[in-house]
Design a protein around this nucleic acid. Structure first.
Lengths: 126, 126, 126, 126
DNA sequence: GTGGTCTAGACCACT
DNA sequence: GTGGTCTAGACCACG
């Protein structure tokens, strides 16, 4: 449950990312109640206000909804969740490929490198 | 020549990255003289203090060296440059693969997605 | 029967307004018995405590009176009701005119705009 | 420069409104530099964080833009400003007319009342 | 000097 | 108990 924080990025953004991934991975399902701000703050060892900020932003992105006095819930719109997954994947991909190209790798290299890395990670799993 | 800045990341880190990529891509060669802080500040529309900070860090990483009275130069150690390239590529790769796995893509998916994206980027270039 | 709540305003104030309007519009007449807190809470999808608070305030404003063991009733003083109507209208009017003036509309503009809006609303009704 | 705050509405929303009106009224012109968060906080006797929140929202609405280390500026897009004016006027109008209708005033009444109020305010000015 | 973020702790409306 | 807002004061990156 602990997040490894990157000091160069606002915490609330990193927690947003963390929660989005929890949703996409299915650990938080559409319509699920989300633990309270105070609880999550305690678990992640972060100030409640920072968690509050996190959810404020997630709510603005329609990923989460608040019910007065009851708590917060994951949006029940499955399409929204698929959309987030696509967006996040697409961002990762663009960032990676553009970065590799700027480092002078050509397309063939890039595919090879990924294939190789993936095989290694396979070996580890076995 | 303008960098698109991400407001959520310190500018000096983004400029460091930019310069490293210039070196690795060969636009700045080992031993090359680097333009002055003021010049670069003007080009990138950034405050000279921030550029100064950038070079301080690059110097700490032994990528750049200052010769008193002469200016700043790219390190002439080619091995150092190869090392940076490897580091940056490795960071990109790890970040990408870890992220994709957290989103629930398996290894086969990941390779497919990259291969597909790379082909598209080929088409654009033609 | 559902109220559209403005999240930025206390609910009990919004329900007070709603009930006052019901009285003024004649849907609740002087001396009428008011449905129970529980019933209203269920209808408006609000917690009974909040409805309770609403009536407390309405009682303080002498718009509603509690008869022990019998329930709550709309005040039977017609003058009181006229007074409320005048107050609410006057508040609406002041708020509107002051706001429009702050936006730079002069008096002639304001009358024109209202006349125009009212005609449109006429058309819709036909 | 002092705002009369309504205790039932978040301060940051009231300050947002205040600033929008300043812009629409021309006291803040497109492209103008806005006084610093700390300064405005001192003037309005509000905590700087609350002002910060105000501008965060105004920036999201594209009414204000931030230049790193330099300060905040009113958007230079005049169309945006006209748009805000129209929105705010339209909100005021809708709120007023709907409210009056709910109080049982018909369209003719409403126009009469506004015309009368406006004449009074004219008399005061003379 | 500027804005951006974070912590700490408080009060409120609502369930 | 929940979330929403506000205050107070701190540190950081940037100019």
């Amino acid at each position: 449950m602990a997040i490894e924080f990157d000091n160069n990025l606002p915490i609330y953004l990193q927690v947003m990312d963390y929660i989005k991934k929890q949703i996409i991975a299915g650990h938080l399902k559409p319509g699920d109640k989300i633990i309270s701000v105070r609880e999550m703050a305690a678990e992640l060892q972060i100030n409640p206000n920072t968690i509050q900020r996190t959810f404020q932003e997630l709510e603005r992105e329609l990923i989460v909804e608040t019910r007065r006095g009851l708590g917060r819930y994951v949006t029940s719109e499955e399409t929204k969740i698929m959309e987030i997954k696509k967006d996040m994947a697409s961002n990762l991909l663009d960032h990676f490929i553009q970065g590799m190209q700027e480092l002078g790798f050509d397309n063939v290299d890039i595919v090879k490198i990924v294939a190789h890395a993936v095989n290694e990670s396979n070996d580890e799993q076995e």
